[in-house]
């Protein structure tokens, strides 16, 4: 009887604590959505109400119609998309190499890649600007893609390596004895088996590239080549009164990464332990 009560109390506490965590995690996002659909005239009068008395999509319409956000959005999609594809390609080659070969210098190369995971990126903001500027790669989406790809390749490599490690070597050897070249075995056997992993890597890199702010801010000052984070930050510093529009833009920035999150959340553990460092 006493035991029963204790178990009951434990579960009440368990769920109560979890509820706190859920509220803490979701409330800021909830508020973002709430303000984005609150009409301007209710914003101040109903400031702390949990739900406005009536809602509107006017902020979204004006963000899409009257601001440069569609351009920023497009730029971000291009940069994040190109970065995720190139990073995943390069990381696939390197990850396969680390997973399947042992060679002189492997330890050194892996070590170098690990070090980059602890790298203070602020340290290289200035030199990168000076290096890319004469090459015409500042104020350019290509420049950002190159830089982001370099930043994301180490992490993506470790991630891909962990996916390749999970595919038994026997399968590939069986294919090679069956008459396949290494590349054919890779294409017909390894790729189909690591497809979910490839998708997860794409997602991780896309999210990271989508979220990057400092280098985008430093390298691309012209608004033609601004990414979403830069645009949003500029908007905040210039027109910091139109909260409805800002938050509507924020929700728009959140959508692609949330979609990726749902897609890759099954691989989160592998991803975070492979990098164990990157956010």
């Amino acid at each position: 009887m006493k035991h029963c009560l204790k178990v009951r109390l434990y579960w009440i506490l368990h769920y109560a604590l979890l509820a706190l965590f859920v509220v803490f995690a979701l409330f800021p996002l909830y508020w973002l959505v709430k303000v984005s659909i609150t009409p301007n005239d209710l914003l101040y009068s109903e400031g702390v109400r949990l739900w406005p008395s009536h809602t509107t999509f006017a902020h979204y319409v004006s963000v899409l119609r009257h601001t440069a956000f569609p351009l920023f959005f497009r730029n971000s999609v291009i940069v994040a998309g190109a970065t995720s594809v190139t990073s995943t390609l390069i990381a696939t080659a390197a990850g396969y190499c680390f997973s399947r070969f042992s060679f002189t210098g492997k330890f050194l190369i892996v070590g170098v890649l690990m070090v980059t995971q602890m790298f203070p990126l602020v340290m290289i903001v200035a030199p990168i600007f000076r290096l890319l500027s004469p090459l015409g790669l500042t104020n350019s989406l290509t420049g950002l893609v190159i830089v982001y790809t370099a930043f994301n390749v180490p992490f993506a490599t470790f991630l891909m390596q962990s996916f390749f490690d999970a595919v038994p070597r026997d399968l590939e050897e069986a294919a090679m004895i069956d008459g396949a070249s290494r590349f054919r075995a890779f294409r017909s056997i390894i790729v189909p088996l690591t497809l979910p992993g490839l998708a997860a890597t794409l997602g991780f890199v896309f999210t990271a590239a989508w979220s990057e702010l400092l280098f985008a801010l430093m390298l691309n000052s012209s608004s033609d080549a601004s990414t979403f984070p830069v645009g949003l930050l500029a908007f905040v510093s210039k027109f910091s009164v139109d909260f409805g529009q800002m938050m509507a833009a924020g929700v728009l920035a959140l959508l692609p990464v949330c979609a990726f999150f749902l897609l890759i959340q099954r691989h989160l553990v592998q991803g975070l332990t492979a990098g164990a460092v990157k956010g």
């Binding site: 038994p168 026997d170 050897e173 069986a174 294919a175 090679m176 004895i177 396949a180």
Partner: peptide, 17 residues
């Protein structure tokens, strides 16, 4: 290369695709 040797192998793990 293995593919040019025209041998077949049965693995301990079977290595079925």
């Amino acid at each position: 290369a293995p593919k040019e040797r025209d041998l077949a192998m049965v693995f301990q793990s079977y290595a079925l695709y």
